[in-house]
Design a protein around this nucleic acid. Sequence first.
RNA 1: GCGGGGGUGCCCGAGCCUGGUCAAAGGGGUCGGGCUGAGGACCCGAUGGCGUAGGCCUGCGUGGGUUCAAAUCCCACCCCCCGCACCA
Length: 958
Amino acid sequence: MFGIDRSLYGPKVERPLVERLKSIEAKWREKWASARLFEADPSDKPKFFVTFPYPYVNAYPHLGSAFTILRVDVTARYKRMRGYNVLFAQGWHATGGPIVSAALRVREGDPKVLRDLKLMGVKDVDGFENPEHWVTFFKEGWKRDLQLFGMSIDWRREFFTTYLNPPYSKFIEWQYYKLREKGLVAIGEHPVVWCPREQKVVGDHDRPDEYAGIGPSEATVIKFYSEDGLVFPALTYRPETIFGATNIWVNPQAIYVIARVGEERWVIGEYGFRELVDQGVPLSAEGKVSGRELLGKRVRNPADGRPLPLLPAAFVEPDVGTGVVMSVPAHAPYDYVALKDLKEACSGPYCEEVKRIEPIVIISSPSFKGIPAQEACEQKGVRSQLDKEALDEATKLVYAEEFYKGQMLVEPWAGVPVKEAKEEIAQWLASKGAALQVHTLPQRVYCRCGARTHVKKVKDQWFLLYSSPEWKRLALEALKSMKVWPEEARREMIRIAEWFRDWAFTHKGELGTRLPWSPEWVIESLSDSTVYMAYYTIAKYLQHPEKYGIRPEQLVPELFDYVFLGQGSAEEVERLTGIKKELVEEMRREFLYWYPVDLRISGKDLMYNHLVFFVFHHVALFPRELWPRGISVNGWINVGGEKMSKSKGNFILLRQAIDWWGADATRWAEIMAGADSTLDDPNFDPATADAAVRELSGWLDFVAENYGKGREERMKVDDWFESVLNEKILRVTQLMEETMYKSALMEGYYDLQSKFKWYLRRAGSPHREVLKRFIEVQTLLMAPFAPHVAEEAWEIMGKQGFISVASWPEADKSKIREELHRAEEIVRRVLEDAREVLRLVRTAKKLRVTVAAPWKYELCKAIAEELPAGQAEAIRRAIKRVSGVEPRQVAQAAQRVAASPEILQLLVPRDLEHQALKEAEEFLSRELGLQVTVELEEESSSPKRGAALPAKPALYAE
RNA sequence: GCGGGGGUGCCCGAGCCUGGUCAAAGGGGUCGGGCUGAGGACCCGAUGGCGUAGGCCUGCGUGGGUUCAAAUCCCACCCCCCGCACCA
């Protein structure tokens, strides 16, 4: 039903197992809800406030969005088990254009939007022509899916954005009044992509996909005056090449507009005319002229006064730029080829002159020796001036090379890097009145309505002044002092913050909150989602008038001033709003209890805007102690090694995954995909989800069968396993603290399980208390990841209460004994080595294991101690320290230690090694299928006994 | 171009910060064995090359370097991904 290729990405696991997990999930979901387990109110416990950027509700969550919020849930659950009062609330984002645009498309019957809706499982598109319907439909969908996923959210604090939810808009209004008071907003000009037919700004969602992401770029219009008083405005991205201009190109087929500006009369393409008018150049059309009529006219180069002829070129498109092109054949492949073509097939009266034109090289760069444009054309195999593809490549090549590595050759800029000269020359021309800075689109962009767009300068655009040094300084201070995982993300965000320019934060015709002092503008989506975490802390009061009786019109700025900033008094607020002073105070207390945000977990894509906005706005509005404390960033999930995409068929909705594998197995597989805090992209493997289904139901069976069972008498391996168990707790706890969730699951589950398996093999059967402790610890460690299964296991064990709020296991450090781990490793290696030996000596019936003589331990200990001096020196010194043994023997042994230096890491007291091996005799015999005896070198008659080294006993198969 | 991330064995993927227990965890796949009426489920073993004694050779993008010792540290280079905004 979702159009997904199940054979490739679907589940391959037994249905009954999944059904069993799902019914367990339903059971605990209900129990949590009826116990209101995740509803968090201020208490005397320490608090932890973790947040997930609220999602844009124009679709259901998929595995990618689920991944990030899962990390939030794991954090919340872990922190609860650590004794924190955790606030995890969730809102929905509806601000902006995409929903409005999608609704419009539904009204128009756009098949693509309808198909996408169908892919979501929407059967009836009735109502989707209305933006509001999208919001309510998908926020309900999100909520349902997140509930099914086991998110431990306090739903009383749910809300959504835009004027459709007045209390939230009141909050945003307050925020912007504050920013204005602080002088952080200003009005100014701003270039936008404009649709002349619909008279509106064209965002990415308002255009066909192939035009997405193309925005206004800066260009220079250079004015060339002709002898008969006309102005030819040539638009260029490379004003510095003016010194290499040899002529002007016009298209002889095209019709140009003659337009008056003050005293001047310009010759310009129709498109450029409109674009410049919309950018404030006061052109008024007076007439038309064909390109052909202009040929042969002469203009003056404003930079050096040289006369330049107007020549014809077919590549010049009248509806790109101004339709007038400055020709620089040495540095522009198009110009170079057009000139060459013209020389070969010239027929006009200006032919003599054309033949005399030679490219003028004015920039030097490492890659080009002669004429750059010529070399680039040859390199790219350009055939003619209409060979667009090759020419574009050649142009790109020359441009990049010269921009980044080129130097000017012309005085007074000789030697200046092009990067700098470009700007200076443009300014110099402008100061002479010979040029102006404009914006244009680097290629044709069409609006969804079909009309060609151009760049318009909006005059009364509102800006957030992110370039303000003081604001920036505070934001950087916050970024530098907060916790950020991974560290690379901090560096990246600091760089982004430094580079931030002013931000146009108001739009028209979108969903959102109206700018209170200029309501024709709506606050844009990134700008209304910067400090809303503060809103969570009191959302339960504001979003539930039936309970608290607070109406939107009572939410005046003074209320927020008091609640968030402590300004004014509760009495004053009561007088202004009629909201009871006690309630106002309660809100203030609640805010102060929860704030600041302890951790914000987000996909790495938001580093480039939202997360930095989040920091900027907090430092602008709140005192230092309320600034955010942490950010953890993760990559975007891949499925089957590739980015999720609808066309590849690997696009998996969360609801679909839950249907296939259940919530816990999906969570498990997502964590295993790579939930550590890194900038890498995690990879979701459906096979892992299948395996998780088996793993989790297997665990429940295991708990049911084994909890409370086991042998009574104590063995040495029991101590080893207890040590492992306690060490794991320490390790996993540390990883959890660092939001390294994949590593935590790998160590805390898979690693521990394989250690447990080894323990079972070693011990034959587990000790009752050790087994009990193992089952408890294992279940607790997996609880943040697979909470439903963990609850079920907890219940099977007969524990009271929810594991979701049980205590995270505490490591008993006294039981961690490093030497036991080494001794066990020695046993493991003996088994491994024995296998290798027995592979080669197939006829063996017995195996003797000989533990090295005491002096060899002395020797190794000495070497280990002397090692800082370098290995060779350490051995020399160590040999001297061993006495009472034939020196030649000592030297030989030392030589062999040098050949296997790893034994130095495994060194344990001889007694312990002997004891461990002695106890493992039976185990080794069982594993190897022959009789194994362990003996001491001095008592041994094994022909191999001399080869024994500490941590590496001699083996003799006979 | 700038900024960020990455390149590990048939595949996926740990390790790299803090060099030695690393021929390199764990999965998957493949091969062999066990359990079974049977199993895609579970358990055990093998899975770079050579080797009738635990060894040797080759090896973590490429080329150098530091070190007694490098997947790990340093330098250079090659390749892949992402961002460079006014958009969620």
